[in-house]
Design a protein around this nucleic acid. Sequence first.
DNA 1: GCCGTTTTCGGCCCGACTGTTTTCAGTCG
Length: 588
Amino acid sequence: MAAELPNSTIADALEELGDLYELDGAIVHRVLAYRTAARSVRESPVSVAALARAGKATQIAGIGATLQEKILALAETGVIPAAEKLRAKFPPGLIAITRLPGLGPKRARLLHSELGIEDIEQLRAAALAQKLRDVRGLGPKFEANVLLALQDGAPASSAPRVLLPKAIELGQALIVGLRESAPRDAQLELAGSARRLADSVKDIDIIATTAEPEALSGLVADLEQIESVSSSGPAGARARTHSGISVDLRIALPAQHGNLLQHFTGSGRHNAALREGAVRRGLHVSEYGVLNDADGISRTCAEEREVYELLGLAWIEPELREDRGELEAAVLSDPSGAGLPELISQQDIRGDLHSHTIASDGRNTIGEMAKAARELGYEYLAITDHSASHGFGNDVSPEELRRQIERVKEANSAIEGIELLAGSEVNILPDGSLDYEDELLAQLDWVVASVHTSFGMAEQAMTERMITAIEHPLVDAIGHPTGRMIVRREPYAVDLEAVFAAAARTGTLLEINANPDRRDLSDVNARAAVRAGVRIVIDSDAHRIATLANMRWGIATARRAWLRKEDVANTLPWAKLRKQRKRGRGKR
DNA sequence: GCCGTTTTCGGCCCGACTGTTTTCAGTCG
């Protein structure tokens, strides 16, 4: 099988084409169509190039005959003719200009046609020379704002994103700060992507209800985390923290609490799709209410559930609100009865199968980890220190692992109320082999195999490497299967379709690693894995007592992946799970 | 460009804010 053009490359090309069409003055819906298609391609679990070759790419939402043809051209010739033409028309620097705050495609095009500006440097020079104010439709204020945007340093595209735990911590701190002096009746809560438990968050959205909105709004400027407030009024305030994160506070009457919470939880795409569906039923949804064309009455909702009810939908868990099929599944009268999944929750987890101790790079002893896991209510904990070639000076030699197995057994007999499993997080070497002998691995209760080296391998070699490990009869699970670090590192090149097929075929579990930096598999990939017949294990990968609690971020990813309790192996008691291990198959 | 309890054309979410405008276009979330 020849390597296909990666979905990410196709998605990038469609996004660029969308940008170019936007500069060219295409109607917004056409541009939007490209962006929707790009996102669908990026999230597709199967190769879109291969689908296009088979004439089946149109099965993907947002891709029609035209786009399939363009994708095919890109896959076969490396270029999309329409993009070539437009690139000749607009200099590449113009797209960067459209990313600056306050500038968009229309103004970028105007600057290009009127002043011949081709990139950010020329824009800066023209602004300094006060040439922008002479362009019809622009003025001195605009010119000043351009200079401000350019001087701000950070090009808008690289606005800082914070990981979910940080975002929630910041959001809660802001809420606590506001509560200290807020009007008595004020109710505050975190909304936006933090409420949806997304991987990372671009801005903090807080909603509030109170009868004294101005009083609440005015408090934002006094918060210690806030650097500046850009607007403030009875509807809320918009501000920036010292760390550069923007904060949005929106205030409504208690009777509109449900409308506001729904609106501000998003995602933007979920809301857009929700509203498009509503319009077909003669309803218009906004943060203020649901307007019915039939009687001209706008109904307000104190509870979020009522908003969905008015639209004939079941309430949708915030984690699912990404326009990934949740609206179709929520239709109450849906004859297909597909419905929304009953999502897994923290209480369903019976044990943690990936943790480290002082034997490798952890900070606590076996006994300390065991007690902490027991306090979390777990029935079992696997101690899975790194293996013989970890390479950070804390390798566990085969002899040491034998001693560690004994230590785990001793600790297990010494503690009541939790079962300790002797395991290892074994390195998958570049050729797919493991760095302990099978004889030793066979003595372990649990084996997680992970890639920790040679991330830069070509896709085909990496795929073979992983499949070799998956096919190893003693490997129970693959740890952090794509190696991504949120915000910091892209996943390595690997054919996940093939990996999922191998995992499903062999009964190897794939991990959702709950470390908030990783959350790997991602929501989209974990969902695709389960659809391909793979079972998932959610692990904390704790390196100290405190990080056992990271499990919650893995649960968040699993919920965003539509996973139910039955999709996740460590919702089973160990006695059951033990028999389902690969090596247990066929026995008995 | 896509898509169909408006099916092969004519629609395609909603509102706020800003700056430039005498009524609105562009941008943003």
